[in-house]
Amino acid sequence: MKRSNRIFARCLALMAISAALQLSPAARAETDMQIQEKALRAREQSQLGDGMDHSAHGASRTAGRFRGVFYGYLPCQEKDCDGIKMTLSLNAKNNYLLVIQPAKPLNRESFEKGKYQWDDNEGILLLAPNREAPQRRLAIKDESTLLYLTGDGRHLSGEQDRYLLRRSDQADHREVHIH
């Protein structure tokens, strides 16, 4: 009798858990991009304090406060490399984080941190790394698109659309298929 009571109690508990799971809404996991964007918007709102959406302003009017996460898939010149996945994060204190991942066998992500500054007159974003490494330059096409340039600010050879980094809220998607 005790055994049948225990089996009945377990079945009853299992049915209760099943019913609770069916009634609760399905859990939806956010992507890392959505979480980063949500955190960035919350940080901006808390720093600005005015509750206004400033995303509609042009790059020249907000260049000193421009920030966001930019993604791109650039051509690669190395052997057995299909491209380079770049993620550039610009924050409110003019700090940046650049993550570079070549699409090749035995690839390793590299990280670069430093300060960035805008040159409104030239329409250039200058990345100055913390460690001894060359500065990087990107042309400001608009508030959501940057064009990767050579270290001295010239356009790279080939089709320029292949060197674009787009802000995450404007990019089609950030997933890249890498072999």
Rank of each mutant, 00 (worst) to 15 (best):
A63W: 08
T150E: 04
K115H: 12
G83H: 07
R166Q: 11
R136A: 10
I124E: 07
D119I: 12
Q36L: 13
M52A: 14
S55N: 00
L106Y: 04
D82F: 07
E175G: 14
A63E: 08
S18W: 06
T145W: 07
L90C: 01
A63V: 13
E122I: 11
S46Y: 09
A63N: 09
T150Q: 03
I84P: 04
F70D: 00
A139S: 08
K104H: 02
Q117C: 01
D50V: 00
R108W: 06
E30L: 06
R28H: 11
P134V: 10
G64D: 15
T87R: 07
I84G: 05
K115Q: 13
R154Y: 12
R28M: 10
L48S: 13
R41C: 04
I84C: 06
Q170A: 13
R174I: 14
R136N: 01
H155P: 00
K113M: 11
K115I: 10
E112M: 11
Q170M: 12
K38T: 15
E30M: 07
S60K: 12
K93C: 12
L14A: 15
D82R: 13
S46P: 05
S168H: 05
A133F: 03
I17K: 05
S55F: 01
S4N: 12
R3A: 14
S157K: 14
Q47H: 12
H155A: 15
M33N: 11
A9H: 06
V69K: 04
A9I: 08
K79F: 11
P25V: 04
